[in-house]
Design a protein around this nucleic acid. Sequence first.
DNA 1: GATTGGCACTCGTAAGCGCCGAGTGCTACC
DNA 2: GGTAGCACTCGGCGCTTACGAGTGCCAATC
Lengths: 338, 338
Amino acid sequence: MAEDRKLDVLRAIVEDYVLTREPVGSKVLVERHNLGVSPATIRNDMAQLEEEGYIVQPHTSAGRVPTDKGYRLFVDRLAEVKPLSAPEKRAIGQFLEGAVDLDDVIDRAVRLLAQLTQQVAVVQYPSLRVSALRHVELVLVDERRLLVVIITDTGRVEQRTVPIPDGIDLAVVAELRARVNAATVGLRAQDVRARLAELPEQMRPEDRPLVQLVVDAVVETLDQEGEDRLVVAGAANLARTGADTAAMLSPVLEALEEQVVLMRLMTEMAEDQRDFAVRIGHETQYEPLAGVSIISSGYGGDTALARIGALGPTRMDYPATIASVRAVARYLSRILAG
Amino acid sequence: MAEDRKLDVLRAIVEDYVLTREPVGSKVLVERHNLGVSPATIRNDMAQLEEEGYIVQPHTSAGRVPTDKGYRLFVDRLAEVKPLSAPEKRAIGQFLEGAVDLDDVIDRAVRLLAQLTQQVAVVQYPSLRVSALRHVELVLVDERRLLVVIITDTGRVEQRTVPIPDGIDLAVVAELRARVNAATVGLRAQDVRARLAELPEQMRPEDRPLVQLVVDAVVETLDQEGEDRLVVAGAANLARTGADTAAMLSPVLEALEEQVVLMRLMTEMAEDQRDFAVRIGHETQYEPLAGVSIISSGYGGDTALARIGALGPTRMDYPATIASVRAVARYLSRILAG
DNA sequence: GATTGGCACTCGTAAGCGCCGAGTGCTACC
DNA sequence: GGTAGCACTCGGCGCTTACGAGTGCCAATC
């Protein structure tokens, strides 16, 4: 038996199923894709594919549907990337150009990707841990509260309020601001902690409690590992992808809000070699996401600050989605670098 | 005919329908609520209520279901507020206490409300327009970009990047920072514009382009009317509220992402006299939201900085939801004031 | 005049049934 | 190895029937 044809059959099944959303049988298969053999032959191939776990039939006498394993093989070996059309590319660039700050860039990117893929788009904020510190600002909000604002070279702005003892001198705050900035500006977040640890000693003893509070606030803010923010768009697309979704929807929406699970997934995906990563159904290792796949790509230059991705039913158009995710990631990198 | 009983019947219908999610007939009505009359009598009342537009039957020979008008009457005249239990109140307070900054407070509040009501919770960020300016910070991100950070007395931090001409002197930035702050700190956002308009004249002519850019950035940021941010939580609750939702869900999710519509609604609701406002189904004046109701309450003191609310199917437990929304709004005000 | 019991009527839903057709696996054949 | 033929399975569709919940109306009653 021609091993090649078997793969062709799998490809055909995936493509057809994604398109029609219905189990695909041997007959329509030879009709729609010109495979050059008879349905009976295809049936033999399908029987084997089923035995190997790439496809299943929902019930006897129905067509076949790809399994997660089937999609996986499809993505790894069978899919050809669909390049985006020139107008599409132009639209992406133009849409992202208009942003006024980091929040805006991120927001536009995620909406854009949701729109392009017709699925749920997800983007991580540039990780604090690999950004360099640009500036730390201290603002006395009132007598008892100090606002610590941290600005990174990626344009990200983080804030935290610190309760302070009464009657702090403005001059002390000014000195502290100067010293903190002198000590840390330009450093990677992960290097900041050590440098700041020395700071209290350099100040007058009576100011040390305040200094310690501020130092802690800065370190904690930079350290909150998984706490990097996640922005989601296009949740409505999930509901539109089919009528079957009614019950399957809720757990996914919950996962989207939970963020923790998604963050973990995104981080794991960063390990992958290729410039994009795919997790299909159960590969997410998280039951509520069993019915969906995630495609993501790093952005922000070689250091790969963070990731942007799309999430949809396992029955999705992988080549097109992969193309869109990569394209948006690339443009996003370019904008952030510029 | 006893007018009072007719209202009792309506109340009973609403309560029963909310509980069971099924059209309610005359028989179960007399069984479950002890109305002291026979089903036939109830039927007469129901016929009248239907004629007056408070209830309808989905099809002949089904029970009755409240209309938007029916819910409205229920909310306005029939509902008794269910006070929250002491443990619930305590939990609210404790949960909100732990927040570290404004973002965190808002985030906790909205999640909490979603949890309490088992519905979608929505919160507006404290409006920039009624906040007072606390501090404006200028940070040179690189040679060609200046980051303008605006901090209000509500703890809100807004940022915007301004492209600037090359070779700006640090001293100029420092002077500008001092002048902007001197001119604006403590002012209401709406008063800032006039004051800043005078600023360029006070600086040297060669610096004016830069000054103008910064002034514009500040004014624009404070001015973006409807642009106040909106945070949503508990979207998954929508999907869980019933199996009927499949098709009805998508438009609502879209509206939640759109934000514009919700912002408008919230703003409108601020006009209402009572300390909470309710919009039921079509009262939202927005077709996609025809199936849902929104309950909201202002928070942030007498000035009512912004609103927090809950959104769910028109068939919701109004008394309980109203109680939760009001409670969270109250605690939120307290936290922000403290 | 309000309330009630009785009754005929409507109609949506569930269940049972038969048919059709898609799709399969198997086997004999090329 | 590929193909054709064939018997078989079974889900979906349409039809009919039965059931029952719920109604509106009317005459009787308080």
